[in-house]
Design a protein around this nucleic acid. Structure first.
Length: 425
DNA sequence: AATTCCGTCAACCGCCGTTGA
DNA sequence: CTCAACGGCGGTTGACGGAAT
């Protein structure tokens, strides 16, 4: 079933826009906004198709577009995000204030890609082209699998975060509607804070998922002996009721719409017979004590320190955003993969995604230092142990590891700081 | 000076997912 | 449930200008 063309092409102008056309389009949008792109050209007196008008507006005429040379910071951002997100230009663009996806894409193709290639780095994989140096040399399992696994998480998180960037200002509007629906669904989730996310400090997440069969949706207790939950079910549940609340999206944090939606997600329903009674919580700095510093049940009061916020509100908002982002934006394969990992973990109270950004870096590098504070992954511990004193590591590899570590830490720093830096959160 | 080559980037194309009738 | 309309996205094209020959 083919698609009809977006508009009747006959008689419509193509090619470069003239200043007169720009003026017409600008004037019209300034006065009326753009409701329907399809109808716009006729109303604005333009011999263009709606799609062309939209493109001209979003890529060129929009007032909040920064043009001109890319700064070093921007270049670094693009490279780092591309390493994680691939060619998801729109997602990357949300981290680069006032740059369009098209501009970034062009810049990548014409500048950065070539520069990386010149440096001997594969612009697709972001690895040195002769990168077989450090894998499996010492009997230590190759980290690729873990890397890929975590990268999946991170990629999904970033994607979701990027999406969330445009939706951040809508969170407050969403909260009431969500909480209402959630209570109907007997699914607990964190309360949405009372402040907007504009001041959110960090999105580095200490994420924990809890389950407690004793919890009912009217319970305001903020501490509970959590048992491990079928996370996937809960998350799917979230996806399920989320799918019932969505309407439309707007790109770039514009106005209108009360939505958080995931174009990539295919999770749309509760698993059969498994409507969970559960709660999402946020681990504090001492997750091992299972102290829930922010736990909000249905009908809870987010500002009630007795029952909820014992840590900084900004921090909570960061956690909240990140959690939501993950819940909202992740795709099926990432869920599955991540949940497999969750299932394999033996943690009493907190599912080990705690500070997973740190873990991500460590995992990427197979750093033994990571095991100090991330000793919850037996597989990785074994891996480290096997590597012993690293005597098998060549200096080259150490050096490369260090560089690699710096590289990825840069990425993570960037990702963590981008919300405030970019001003979009 | 003429021609070719190459880099840049605005714009187009076609596919996809969502929405609503 | 179906399907057309729509907006969003990524890949690609082609016009243009400057550098190289």
């Amino acid at each position: 079933m083919g698609r009809s063309p977006c508009c009747e092409k006959v008689g419509l102008k193509k090619g470069p826009w003239t200043p007169e056309e720009d003026q017409k389009l600008l004037a019209y949008i300034e006065k009326h906004g753009h409701g329907s792109w399809r109808a716009l050209p006729a109303k604005a007196g333009l011999q263009r198709c709606g799609k062309s008008c939209r493109l001209r507006w979003t890529n060129y005429l929009r007032p909040d577009i920064k043009r001109g040379k890319f700064s070093l910071q921007e270049e670094q951002t693009i490279i780092q995000l591309h390493a994680l997100l691939g060619n998801r230009w729109s997602a990357i663009a949300t981290h680069l204030h006032k740059r369009t996806d098209n501009e970034i894409k062009n810049y990548w193709n014409t500048h950065l890609k070539k520069r990386l290639a010149k440096m001997g780095i594969d612009p697709v994989t972001h690895k040195p082209k002769s990168d077989n140096l450090c894998s499996s040399v010492d009997g230590r399992p190759n980290n690729d699998a873990n890397l890929s696994h975590m990268a999946q998480w991170e990629s999904a998180r970033l994607e979701a975060e990027a999406r969330l960037a445009g939706e951040a200002t809508k969170l407050q509007h969403l909260s009431n509607s969500l909480l209402h629906q959630v209570s109907n669904a007997h699914v607990g989730l964190m309360g949405l804070g009372s402040s907007t996310s504009a001041t959110s400090s960090s999105s580095t997440s200490s994420i924990a998922l809890y389950n407690n069969s004793n919890i009912n949706h009217t319970n305001n207790n903020n501490k509970f002996g959590a048992t491990r939950l079928p996370c996937l079910d809960v998350l799917k549940a979230w996806q399920g009721f989320r799918s019932t609340t969505k309407s439309t999206t707007t790109k770039g944090g514009g106005s209108g719409g009360v939505v958080l939606e995931s174009p990539t997600s295919t999770l749309t329903a509760f698993p059969e017979n498994s409507m969970p009674i559960a709660a999402f919580g946020f681990a504090g700095e001492n997750p091992n004590n299972a102290t829930v510093v922010s736990m909000e049940f249905i009908g809870g009061n987010s500002s009630n320190s007795e029952g909820g916020m014992d840590c900084g509100e900004e921090e909570l908002v960061g956690y909240k955003e990140s959690m939501e982002a993950v819940l909202i934006g992740i795709d099926d394969s990432a869920w599955t993969s991540a949940m497999e990992s969750v299932k394999s973990e033996e943690r009493e109270n907190v599912v080990p995604m705690t500070n997973f950004m740190d873990g991500f870096t460590d995992l990427l590098l197979g750093s033994s230092t990571a095991d100090h504070h991330h000793n919850h992954n037996p597989e990785r511990n074994n891996s480290s142990d096997q590597s012993g004193g690293n005597s098998d590591h060549s200096d080259e590899c150490d050096e490369f590891d260090q560089e690699n570590k710096n590289y990825w830490n840069n990425i993570l720093n960037l990702v963590n700081s981008s919300p405030s830096d970019s001003g979009v959160f």
